[in-house]
Write a protein that binds this DNA or RNA. Structure first.
Lengths: 99, 99
DNA sequence: TAAAAGTACTTTGTATTTCAAAGTTTATAG
DNA sequence: CTATAAACTTTGAAATACAAAGTACTTTTA
């Protein structure tokens, strides 16, 4: 019970970040607009959270032109998956403590 | 996948709040200092989070003198338990979506 | 009965986080 | 050219979080 909270990853505390990572755990490459609609966030907000996750090397980005239109897709890195798994494990521990 | 995030309760997003509620789910009455040490937070910080949870009616407070010393204890209300259960369920859903 | 100590705050001030809205860039379509 | 779309970036405001210092109340100690 001593280190109840230390394994929680600060970068995943926010709900939108939780959503992003959850989506990226099951989908290999997810494009900007799909993510935006899935989470119901503004484009600016999504971009900034993405940037934060990118800065932590938790997601990688691929920019290309698809159908002659700019298309940005994301996927979780190995590191990101690992970090998120650890976060979820810590959450589960909390959940099991809590009932 | 549409309402991926809406069942998450904003008041439980913070790690310390998560810790508080987890502790209160399994312990009926927990005193201020035990909570403070369990979570490794300053007294001011704990007090303010407690106040926030109290304002939402998620915890109730009992103040008394024990061994001639002031003693404040907390427990989760029925409402608080319900809200936290829902939050955990939403988290679990995310977790299961995410692996 | 005055000083000291402990509990549980409250206040203050700062730093960080979050978010929407507006503006920007680049590339294609007409 | 001009318009349009995607994906940002910038700006600014509001909310949140936190530590540190200060306070109130009570009991203990001298």
């Amino acid at each position: 019970m001593k280190e109840l909270l230390i394994n929680l990853n600060k970068h995943f505390e926010n709900r939108i970040r939780l959503g992003i990572m959850s989506v990226l755990m099951v989908n290999d490459w997810v494009d900007f607009n799909t993510m935006k609609e899935t989470l119901s966030v503004t484009d600016g907000n999504l971009a900034s959270h993405m940037k934060a996750l990118e800065a932590e090397k938790y997601v990688e980005v691929k920019k290309q032109f698809l159908d002659k239109k700019p298309n940005t897709t994301y996927r979780a890195t190995i590191e990101g998956r690992k970090a998120f798994e650890e976060h979820l494990a810590a959450l589960e521990k909390l959940i099991n403590t809590g009932r």
